[in-house]
């Protein structure tokens, strides 16, 4: 599914990633750990296709439209409501039965009641839950999650636990975290960045 060989990424004179090699089979679960500034986000952006490696290569055997990406930021419009945001991305991703899918996800992540409120009025945790809805909207084959537990409260984290439990083994997952205890049992592979 994903094959990385001799991956190096530098921004000008600053080297962010160096000598990354790994291979992740279909439906595998790669856990990426490392301290702050070790390049976790950059690696995930390279896998998602948002950044190009300076040297080496990464091969991802899945179409861009089948990748789900959760970033540090929620990647949704502040001035729009949850419903409007998901509707826009649902159209761009050509999600079949869009309305039903959106309703189901909002329900599952406890956002149905606030679906018509603007994102700018959301708390950090609510934004993060909406971002998860956005990433899962098109039922991606490859799901890339950058620090998914950040800013989630215990309830939200529980919802995510349940989701990851379901997805592990059924979808390919790449998850970065600086606190691996929570999900390391699900992971099939582990990559530690220094």
């Amino acid at each position: 599914m994903i094959r990385a060989a001799g991956l190096e990424k530098r921004y000008g004179s600053r080297r962010v990633l160096r000598g990354i090699d790994f291979e992740l089979p279909r439906d595998g679960f790669l856990l990426v750990t490392g301290s702050n500034g070790s390049g976790k986000t950059t690696l995930l952006r390279v896998i998602a296709g948002l950044a190009a490696p300076t040297r080496g290569k990464v091969q991802v055997d899945v179409h861009r439209g089948r990748v789900g990406f959760l970033a540090h930021e929620p990647l949704v419009y502040r001035a729009l409501t949850a419903l409007e945001n998901l509707d826009l991305f649902g159209r761009l991703y050509r999600v079949p039965e869009r309305r039903e899918r959106i309703g189901m996800l909002l329900e599952r992540f406890g956002l149905w009641e606030v679906r018509s409120e603007r994102v700018e009025d959301y708390s950090r945790g609510m934004s993060q839950r909406l971002a998860l809805c956005r990433a899962l909207l098109h039922d991606p084959e490859l799901l890339i999650l950058d620090e998914p537990y950040a800013s989630l409260d215990e309830h939200g984290a529980g919802l995510l636990d349940r989701e990851l439990d379901e997805l592990a083994g059924a979808r390919t997952l790449v998850v970065s975290t600086h606190d691996p205890a929570r999900i390391e049992l699900l992971a099939t592979q582990r990559l530690v960045l220094a």
Partner: peptide
Amino acid sequence: VPEQEHGVFDGLVLAPC
């Protein structure tokens, strides 16, 4: 500016359109 807030630009670039 709306795309720069909350990193929406990345979201649009990732979409398959």
